[in-house]
Design a protein around this nucleic acid. Structure first.
Lengths: 213, 213
DNA sequence: GACATTAACAGACATACGTCTGTATTGTCG
DNA sequence: CGACAATACAGACGTATGTCTGTTAATGTC
């Protein structure tokens, strides 16, 4: 095999990967035969050979036996942006059910699994000096605890709020970043940490989160 | 049929829709039998009845005969997430070439075409009071002009800078949002507007822009 | 009570799709 | 040349999955 043809082959492999990725991102993975048809192979197996090679390279994952079984790898390639639900208002404990009825979806790149992430629209000026303004969208990683100093989403009195967490003498304190507001020092049983803010976004114009019907 | 049971049924229909949508967004649509199993139906047909009803309602589209043929109707996700290049440093006129060698890619939802967008990492404290901090990433729509009051990326003295644009007496003024900095009022031929900031992002932890494989 | 409607079930059938086995061709290397 | 690997092809096979037909039970209507 000549170097030229080997190069040509690598190029085709790349093309096939891009095709599959595109199809996955636009709705559903392609079947082996769809790949075959799109690239003009005269045998299904030829397409399959490439797909299996891509799996071996780690560019694709697959679920053997299943129809349309090729997937984008979750951890190794953070490349595909996952869509996480944007929640308008989080109330008492209803995080899981709220995720099923979001205001929209926001594309996020993260190593975290999709179902551990959600997005929340910020209300109020209490974090102004941390450069988080009302209307901003925060991306949150669900976790029950966080380190002192991190910005978290906490549920206090049936209402979700974004604050900086301080742990003092084993007690949870929620500190605003605005001198006009006072720290919240709730009883331990009246506060629950929903997650840690890992990203802040502000949509100024022309790029807004997708609203769901 | 009682009103109660009819309501219960509508609720189940909704649950099934949310399940299917979630599965589509996480990789691939479910099969009829996966829906059956997830909701405990004892016959495939029961799941199928619901899915067909959802198609009739317009909540789902389907490709008949195809495996995993259910889709989200076009329009339920207005804009696809495109990946725009993240540029570390923009210098004199080299915007097009810089786009070819990005520091990474950032997923953005926008109606704008992919090649009219880029992302830029912010340096300096000059926009602090507009809640834009050093290290933040701004998403920029390429355009040669902008309205007074909008936040823009401008090229001044061979260096890209983020400032608020003011047009006064036909002159371009670039205003920082920080009293420690002075407005820039350059000669018209020494300044060039590269684009308008349409989004601001701050990556706190665990979600950073990635390099393309 | 006769009848229609609806949700759910049961089972068979058809096909879309993944998978396996084997062959032909071409190029590389010793 | 002969062994070997890589690519592509051909065709068959098995199963995953969509689809069809008919039944049962519950409920509501006249």
């Amino acid at each position: 095999m000549t170097a030229a043809s080997r190069y040509r082959s690598q190029e085709r492999k790349r093309r096939i990967f891009l095709f599959v990725r595109d199809r996955i991102l636009s709705g559903a993975p392609p079947t082996t035969r769809e790949v075959q048809a799109h690239f003009g192979f005269r045998a299904v197996q030829s397409a399959r050979d490439y797909l299996e090679a891509l799996v071996r390279d780690g560019l694709l994952d697959k679920e053997p036996g299943k129809a349309r079984g090729y997937r984008l790898p979750a951890g190794s390639t953070p490349y595909p942006a996952v869509l996480v639900p944007l929640l308008g208002r989080v109330q008492a404990g209803a995080l899981t059910t709220a995720s099923e009825d979001p205001d929209g979806y926001v594309p996020v790149q993260s190593a975290k699994p999709r179902d551990e992430l959600f997005a929340l629209r910020v209300r109020g000026e209490s974090m102004r000096d941390a450069a988080i303004l009302p209307g901003d969208v925060v991306i949150v990683h669900r976790q029950e605890s966080a380190a002192s100093g991190e910005i978290v989403v906490a549920l206090v009195e049936d209402e979700a709020t974004v604050k900086r967490l301080k742990l003092r003498a084993g007690r949870i304190e929620l500190h605003p970043a605005n001198p006009a507001f006072d720290p919240i020092v709730p009883d331990a049983d009246r506060v629950r940490i929903l997650g840690k803010v890992i990203e802040v976004r502000r949509y100024l114009e022309g790029s807004a989160p997708v609203l769901e019907p």
